[in-house]
Amino acid sequence: MDSYFSILFTEVYKILFLLVPVLVSVAMIVWLDRRVWAFVQKRRGPNVVGPFGLFQSLADALKYIFKEIIIPASSNKLVFVLAPVVTMTLALISWAVIPFGEDFVLADINVGILYLFAVSSLGVYGIIMGGWASNSKYPFLGAIRSAAQMVSYEVSIGVIIINVLLCVGSLNLSDIVMAQQNLWFVIPLFPMFVIFFISALAETNRPPFDLPEAEAELVAGYQTEYSGMMYAMFWLGEYANILLMCAMGSVLFLGGWLSPIDIFPFNAIPGPFWLIFKILFLFILFALVKATVPRYRYDQLMKLGWKIFLPFSLFYVVLTSSFLLYFDLLPGK
């Protein structure tokens, strides 16, 4: 029992060591998102609080903390309060399996990629619960839309993951990174990377797929009735999910913590920094897409997911597996 508690203590320490940087970087990433967005539109963006406006998110967080939390009288109280908690928790627990370097991972489990996929597929519940418990038209419509959207795009993400797994032969995220030592998967699986990127946009409800919170039609979608800290938790959870999707993309396709070429100035930089660079690169792409592309119509969204992405990625599974089989490259023999 004593050793159990000592293990527990070190684990809690490790978890804090992981979660605090994640939360801080979520706040920073919101600032980055707004700055990139403003840059594209030739505005300045948040530049007042702190150097370059870096502390804008902290100021916003402080504002949310001091705002009153309003719970609608006709809402389902318990579910209403649980919804942002669920979103936030699910967004944070998936970071446990992301490998930041060799042996630099909180939980190096055998089925890491399945765990990531499972947790991201649970993410829809926060949104449905929030939309349903608000007991109001707009949140409900937003939640229903979001559920349909996330379930559809998860299917294509799952098939894309199968493509990567065929080349790796293991579900472990560290193995996936190590398999990319010679060649990042973005090169042989480039079409899959593009589809993964677009599906990740849809999965995290980012523009141009932000139909669940389309302000022109649904006020603010599922979070219409939320205020104060509860709204901020939805918001933090959403950005943590976006970061997670970027991390997943860099682990699956961009070689995780590996440096692009294994020569001196590059491989001297420690692995975690490479992963952070890659996450930032993907995130800036996310922000640029947000600033440039107009919002999709709902039927176009569904058509893209089911009639284009799913058949194409299924075709690519067949292509990848036949290629690997023909050239006798199948891993794990």
Binding site: N110, V111, F117, A118, L122, V151, G158
Partner: peptide, 17 residues
């Protein structure tokens, strides 16, 4: 662990939605 994760993905992630 494989069965557990598949259970989460299939039942919780898709069927229950």
């Amino acid at each position: 662990e494989f069965l557990g994760m598949i259970m989460l993905i299939v039942y919780v992630g898709a069927v229950a939605v």
